[in-house]
Design a protein around this nucleic acid. Structure first.
Length: 612
DNA sequence: TGCGAAACAT
């Protein structure tokens, strides 16, 4: 079915003064609810596009297009069917602007604020309403603010804030809560959000959740968890949405113990187990290292959405259990769930992390052929990763050259890593140099080139990179590893000596080094990003945050218990090799989450098969 | 004359 859509921006050309003076048609219908009620009832239940189109005809035939209530319900119905422009073509075919009221406009604004289309449309109709001389009601503002949040436009948000104060709606808690949320979403808006939050006379669970979610989205997960504690102290009862936000902070921190506590809290307090909450739990367990628990929860869910399936597939992929991920994907299709783009990203990354090259290729083509999904840059990225990991560097490069969209720096970096691992050093060097020209302020581009020179054993070039970076004032992301112990998260950052057990930890690190050397470990110094001699390199390696965290765990946890750590970057080659030795020497399972996946070290082996 | 807020998978 085809609809002709009136594009919002064309509406600028409507002469509003003319509209206002035109005679009102069908005046008789305006105030008689009984006449329009059947039409409203049908609109309420309208759930398909053909029905909507039929109603459209009826509305015109009956002259209801001048009835604001009918227009409003038609707009809601269209919005539910993701066909807002269709409603707009009806609404703005009206000849007399006097049928427009604040309720109709707040419905239009809502439709655009909640749609996947440009949030600018919502702002446009807000301004259009003002242009018509219609005073907004307070119900419009949560949606106008939602649009500002979607646009992440702080200045716009501030302007709307000023305007709603002028209309006197700033004492409404719904409006206040949405303002907190809006400021949390805008870049640079956190301080405004926090100020509002701190000054609000009454905080309900929604206010707290908006603020907690704000910290979580910014990656300030520890702050989010801290605020959740304050919420409990304040005696405000968290609800299901609060738990979802807190769980996503746990997931980010890799805080399995806290996550388990939240799960038991949910059970104890009988928090409503929505499908979103179950999904958040599944995701948390998978990303905090207990993928079997995630699978168990997933199996017990009475209702599953595409998000549930994707979470568990991605979880398995991260743990290197690609075959299980693939079979779950097949099970998902068999259950009638239609996979969409994100599910394929999870699936392709599962193939990639488990070396399932042929499967990956098949799924990539099935995605388009069978499901009509146009591959996005992330899908191409997965394929480059898949080919690169498998050592098919030339094919990966050809794949990139044939891509119909511009490759992004992530794809180039994947290729460069592959070049280093598989010995295509000259190629890696030239791609690196090109990438540095395009993206001169990105630290990892230099690290990659430096590692290539390390493998070439070209120390002179390697040290030049460090000088170049210093000159450009490039910010380095320090490696950091987190570990949870007794309801506390300990973070170890390279070069940070502030931990109160620092001296003991260093002693332990040195002891670990001696034991490992006795067992045949040789430090991998080619990746050290410092211009220093070999002995100091070893020293620098032994201070890596991963090793500090493992030493801390060996000192503070019972013998034989598993060690779970979370690293912010990808695990370095030396720490990976050292972890294998440590797992055997100290008889510990080490579960390490790095930026891209999990490594389960056990008895001298890693689940990633040394491929990550 | 009808209406509103916070959350999950890359």
């Amino acid at each position: 079915m085809r609809f002709s859509y009136l594009k919002p921006r064309l509406l600028h050309s409507i002469n509003t003064s003319k509209l206002k003076t035109t005679t009102l048609h069908h005046q008789s219908n305006m105030n008689h609810r009984a006449v329009e009620q059947p039409c409203l009832d049908i609109l309420q239940a309208c759930n398909t596009l053909p029905k909507l189109a039929q109603l459209h005809t009826h509305i015109i035939k009956l002259g209801f297009q001048n009835n604001p209530l009918v227009l409003t319900k038609f707009t809601s119905a269209s919005s539910n069917l993701d066909a807002i422009p269709y409603a707009m073509s009806l609404v703005f075919s009206v000849e007399d602007a006097r049928v427009y009221d604040a309720f109709l406009f707040s419905t239009i604004i809502r439709a655009y604020a909640e749609s996947s289309q440009s949030k600018h449309n919502a702002i446009f109709y807000y301004n259009l309403m003002l242009g018509y001389g219609i005073s907004p009601n307070k119900y419009a503002f949560p949606f106008v603010l939602k649009a500002c949040a979607g646009l992440r436009d702080l200045n716009l948000g501030k302007a709307v804030h000023g305007s709603l104060v002028k209309f006197g709606f700033d004492d409404d808690i719904f409006v206040q809560n949405t303002m907190v949320h809006m400021y949390c979403c805008c870049s640079g808006g956190m301080e405004f959000a926090r100020k509002l939050f701190d000054e609000m006379p009454k905080l309900d669970p929604v206010t707290w959740t908006a603020m907690i979610g704000g910290y979580a989205r910014l990656g300030q997960s520890a702050g989010a968890v801290g605020l959740f504690r304050k919420m409990q102290i304040a005696g405000v009862c968290p609800d299901d949405v609060t738990m979802v936000s807190v769980l996503s902070a746990c997931t980010d921190l890799g805080a399995l113990e806290l996550g388990k506590w939240i799960e038991s809290y949910i059970e104890k307090e009988r928090v409503l187990k929505t499908v979103e909450l179950s999904n958040a739990l599944v995701d948390m367990f998978a990303k905090c290292g207990d993928v079997d628990k995630a699978l168990g929860l997933f199996r017990n869910m009475s209702k599953r959405t595409i998000v549930s399936w994707t979470s568990v597939i991605v979880g398995l992929a991260m743990h290197g259990r690609g075959l299980e991920a693939v079979s779950l994907f097949e099970e998902m299709k068999a259950s009638g769930m239609v996979p969409e783009d994100i599910a394929f990203i999870g699936l392709l990354s599962a193939c990639s992390h488990s070396g399932l090259v042929e499967r990956g290729r098949q799924y990539f083509s099935e995605m388009t052929r069978q499901f009509g999904i146009v591959p996005k840059i992330e899908h191409y990225g997965c394929m480059v990763d898949l080919l690169s990991r498998a050592g098919l560097v030339t094919e990966a490069l050809e794949f990139v050259e044939r891509m119909p969209i511009e490759p992004n720096p992530i794809i180039w970096r994947t290729l460069i890593s592959a070049c280093r691992v598989h010995g295509e050093l000259k190629l890696g060097e030239s791609i690196s140099k090109q990438l540095i020209r395009n993206e001169p302020m990105h630290e990892s581009n230099y690290v990659l080139l430096s590692n290539i020179y390390g493998k070439m054993l070209d120390w002179e070039k390697k040290s030049k990179i460090r000088v170049a970076m210093g000159k450009k004032g490039i910010q380095k992301v320090p490696g950091s590893t987190m570990i949870e112990l007794d309801n506390e998260i300990h973070e170890f950052i390279v070069g940070d000596r502030s931990h109160n057990q620092y001296n003991e930890i260093i002693k332990m690190v040195n002891e670990m080094g001696r034991e490992m050397k006795r067992a045949g470990y040789a430090p991998t110094t080619t990746e050290v990003f410092l211009d220093i001699d070999e002995e100091d390199k070893e020293d620098a390696l032994s201070r890596h945050s991963e090793k500090l965290a493992i030493a801390f765990a060996l000192l503070n946890t019972p013998p034989g218990s598993p060690i779970r750590i979370t690293k912010n970057l990808r695990v370095c080659g030396d720490c990976h090799s050292a972890s294998k030795f440590i797992s055997k020497i100290y008889n510990r399972e080490i579960v390490m989450r790095d930026r891209s996946r999990f490594h389960h070290f056990r008895d001298g082996q890693c689940s990633c098969g040394d491929f990550w």
